[in-house]
Amino acid sequence: MEENRDLKARLCKLEARFDSMVDLATNKVKEVEAKAIETHSATLAKVKTCVIVELREQRLQAENTLKIRIGGLPQAWETTELDFSERINFLNETLKPIKVDHNAISRITWRGPDLPIPSGHAILEFESRECRLKLLQQSRLLKDTKFWIAEELTPLQLKRKSEELKKVHEARKQGKWAVYRGGKAIIQEFRNPKSALPTADPS
């Protein structure tokens, strides 16, 4: 009987230890599950944020495919009351020999009380990419003047511009063809001309 009592006491202790281990394991599982859910939620939030940022950037870049920015314009550009046609004439008079086609422009934006555009800047929106390209090609005519014409860039592209230009300069030093276009460096290897076929030795 004493042995039975000892055995029962040991069994009770073992059961108590087992129950304690089960509770501890259950709590650990719950902690792991909670951390997994928290980590999963944080990961999903980060992915969602990255997707939203990327989609917004793509939308801005798509909108800018029809826009260019002109800088260095006189203060009269902002303060003078002019209608659309008069502003085009103002640009043509100021940017000679640059020629801005009235029919190619759908919208002009300049510095205003609610617009974060620097003083002396104008953003032109074109009817087509071809019209935009024609004006961009004339930008070389403004060399050695205070005026300039450039592609309209997104804030993210402006932030990365110096880094992309550095890539262009490094590539050119290595003898590669490189330009800065669309807010990024475009680099290609020059195609080497085909070597002449060896001629037969006349001797």
Rank of each mutant, 00 (worst) to 15 (best):
D114V: 01
R10P: 00
P198N: 03
A45C: 04
R69Q: 10
L11D: 04
D201A: 05
S162P: 00
K35N: 13
A185P: 03
V168A: 03
A104V: 00
G182N: 05
L91D: 02
Q75T: 14
E31Q: 14
R107P: 00
L142A: 10
R111F: 08
I52C: 05
P116K: 11
D19G: 00
I105C: 02
F190P: 13
L142Q: 11
K176F: 07
L7D: 08
K176E: 10
A34E: 15
Q61E: 14
K99L: 09
N64T: 01
T79W: 09
I108C: 01
E81A: 11
F90H: 11
F84V: 06
H169L: 08
K134L: 05
R56N: 15
N89S: 15
L158V: 04
K35C: 05
V47W: 04
K166Y: 10
Q138V: 01
T109P: 00
A25R: 14
L24Q: 15
L44C: 07
L73R: 11
S85V: 13
E38Y: 02
E189V: 02
V179D: 08
E81P: 00
L158A: 06
C131K: 12
L44E: 11
E3M: 11
A171S: 05
P193N: 06
E127D: 13
A36D: 02
G175F: 08
C50D: 04
K99Y: 05
K35A: 13
S20M: 13
E86P: 01
K48M: 04
R59M: 02
L165N: 02
I187F: 06
R191N: 12
W148R: 11
I105R: 06
L60H: 02
K46M: 07
R107D: 04
L115I: 13
T145M: 11
K96Q: 13
L91Q: 03
P198C: 03
L142D: 10
F84G: 03
E130Q: 14
E57M: 02
L95G: 06
L91T: 04
N4M: 12
E152S: 07
W77G: 02
S203E: 15
